[in-house]
């Protein structure tokens, strides 16, 4: 599973006024992985995502998809975009049609599928995002959360190998955010490569299996979540907080409340396990001390 699906090598991107949004950036995303991008606003996350989909063309360097350099002729771009889908942050910039059904069917039609197959793709995407009941509703009467799910269905209907989510949980209520993350997990289990950007360190820490931290158009650090989020230097550089789970873990460890050999927890359940084991351990220690007295 160590095959990389998206690669950037020495990518540089300049805006027309000469400011650099991406500077000499090289990274690679593993096939089938769950990668999270963190970093302050303006770090270049969205700009980088637009490179993965061929919307932006690097001023220097190259982008590779499935081991091959991305080419920017019409046919190659269509082929790339079939395989790499982006769910944009603001659904209102993505939804172009007043009808949910028409909106979701746009992508599959562009891929050249026949109508029957388009219908099937649309139905499946709507079922996966739980919006089948919105089929006949006009997009302008939907709530933000509903629009968000339609914008996800837009991309699912195209069944790409890689799906990029630009801040998927921004502005969503906790329940919806959880459901969106659930969907992302399901997609990942179904074999898709899922990439997301977020400002939520807790979410990134427990969801991702690989983390990129960006700052000023560069990769400030990358690695497994356990190591990235314990690296104070990188966190400080990108103005990131430590996930609460690691904060608590560190504190408990310092005070000696954890068993030796307790691994760094990825979920709160894992942490609770260590703590409860340790409580009986601590209790035993206390009894021992009492009996000695």
């Amino acid at each position: 599973m160590d095959e990389s699906i998206l690669e950037a090598s020495h990518v540089e991107f300049k805006y027309q006024d000469g400011t650099k949004a991406i500077r000499d950036l090289s990274l690679s995303v593993k096939k089938g992985g769950k990668a999270a991008f963190l970093g302050p606003n303006g770090a270049g996350k969205t700009t980088l995502f637009l490179h993965f989909n061929g919307i932006l063309r690097p001023s220097q360097g190259r982008v590779r998809f499935a081991g091959r350099d991305v080419r920017y002729d019409h046919a190659s771009l269509v082929d790339l975009r079939k395989n790499v889908g982006i769910v944009f942050q603001d659904p209102d910039t993505q939804l172009f049609s007043a009808s949910v059904l028409q909106e979701v069917s746009f992508g599959p039609f562009n891929m050249g599928l026949p109508e029957d197959q388009v219908r099937q793709c649309v139905d499946e995407a709507m079922a996966a995002t739980e919006i089948a009941d919105l089929r006949g509703r006009p997009t302008h009467l939907l709530s933000y959360g509903q629009k968000k799910r339609v914008s996800i269905a837009d991309i699912l209907a195209m069944d790409p190998q890689v799906i990029i989510f630009d801040e998927p949980t921004a502005c969503l209520d906790p329940r919806l955010a959880l459901r969106v993350m659930d969907l992302l997990d399901r997609l990942s289990r179904g074999g898709k490569t899922v990439i997301l950007s977020t400002h939520d360190v807790d979410l990134a820490y427990s969801w991702a299996d690989y983390v990129f931290v960006m700052k000023n158009g560069e990769v400030a650090g990358e690695g497994l979540p356990e190591s990235i989020f314990q690296n104070e230097k990188i966190l400080a550089q990108a103005d990131l907080k430590k996930p609460w789970l690691l904060e608590v873990y560190g504190e408990l460890k310092k005070k000696g409340w954890l068993l030796n050999g307790a691994t760094v927890p990825r979920t709160k359940e894992q942490l609770f396990e260590h703590v409860s084991e340790n409580k009986s351990f601590g209790h035993a220690r206390m009894l021992k001390a009492e009996s000695r007295r």
Binding site: D90, G107, N110, E115
Partner: peptide
């Protein structure tokens, strides 16, 4: 908005013609 829209449409393989399903 119109610039953003053209980005998001091209991200879905827009090639100059909008084809959609009818109810």
């Amino acid at each position: 908005r119109s610039r953003e829209l053209s980005k998001t449409l091209s991200a879905r393989c827009y090639t100059g013609e909008i084809r959609v399903l009818e109810t």
